[in-house]
């Protein structure tokens, strides 16, 4: 479904200093698979997601989506941003129905799709609210609904719950799983939280902690869903991942 082939990225900083961010990253994602990219801050994992989204071009290597190389951003991928990035001048409904409208759907149809996804993320009754009236968790629900409303083949989530408190975060993870189970998509989820990765992922790809980011290991998580955050197997895998990642730091 998605194939990253030997993707590398080097940024040029002010004063023409080169900063290598990603080096030789190759990842394969199957259809309807939930893949989590796990790595510490500043390891280039967000950049990888932005490359897959088409917002950045890789210095070398290619990203292939359903056999076609990615050349730019498009509606076939839905991106959820870390900082929510809702349009403050649009209501919840306005934000969510924007994608379908931009893709040329008629007004009524766009509205129906938007209402469906607002309902799915549990925000019915808040359609007329403006983003500044919502809490962080609710804002990110809007972000998720907005990405979903375009019916993308791939959902890309960039540390979506990084700004939430621990309790809301766990709740939102459960919600994410529920939404994904209801409306299955291929998901690429970036996080720095091991628990979050283990709770959600079919497969975890860890990225090394130092720049440039390289793929460290891949873990297949075949625990039954919904997962118990304190279950025996869960904790064993958690230890394994943490031990491996601490070594590289």
């Amino acid at each position: 479904m998605i194939e990253c082939r030997n993707v590398s990225k080097t940024f040029i900083q002010k004063g023409s200093q080169e900063v290598p961010v990603l080096e030789d990253v190759s990842i394969d994602v199957q259809a309807n698979e939930f893949v989590v990219i796990l790595g510490p801050g500043q390891s280039g994992k967000s950049t990888l997601l932005r490359i897959i989204a088409g917002l950045e071009t890789p210095t070398t290597g290619t990203v292939i989506l359903d056999g076609e190389p990615v050349t730019g951003p498009g509606a076939d991928r839905g991106l959820v941003f870390q900082g929510y990035m809702l349009f403050p001048w649009k209501t919840v409904l306005g934000n969510v129905e924007m994608g379908p409208k931009l893709c040329g759907l008629p007004r009524d149809e766009a509205r129906d799709i938007a209402m469906h996804y607002i309902d799915l993320v549990g925000l019915n009754g808040f359609e007329k609210h403006y983003p500044h009236q919502l809490s962080g968790g609710m804002k990110q629900r809007v972000g998720i609904a907005r990405a979903y409303a375009n019916k993308p083949r791939v959902m890309l989530l960039d540390e979506p719950f990084g700004q939430l408190d621990a309790q809301t975060r766990i709740f939102m993870e459960q919600e994410t799983e529920r939404i994904w189970q209801t409306d299955k998509r291929t998901v690429l989820f970036v996080t720095n939280n091991t628990d979050e990765a283990l709770f959600l992922a079919d497969r975890i790809v860890t990225i090394e902690g130092k720049l440039p980011g390289r793929v460290q290991r891949t873990y297949t998580v075949d625990l039954p869903r919904p997962r118990d955050l304190t279950g025996k197997h869960f904790l064993e895998m958690r230890r394994e991942i943490i031990d491996a990642s601490v070594l590289t730091l």
Partner: peptide, 10 residues
């Protein structure tokens, strides 16, 4: 980043 949102939405 708001521009990125619009571009991502097509």
């Amino acid at each position: 980043e708001l521009y990125d949102v619009v571009r991502m939405l097509g």
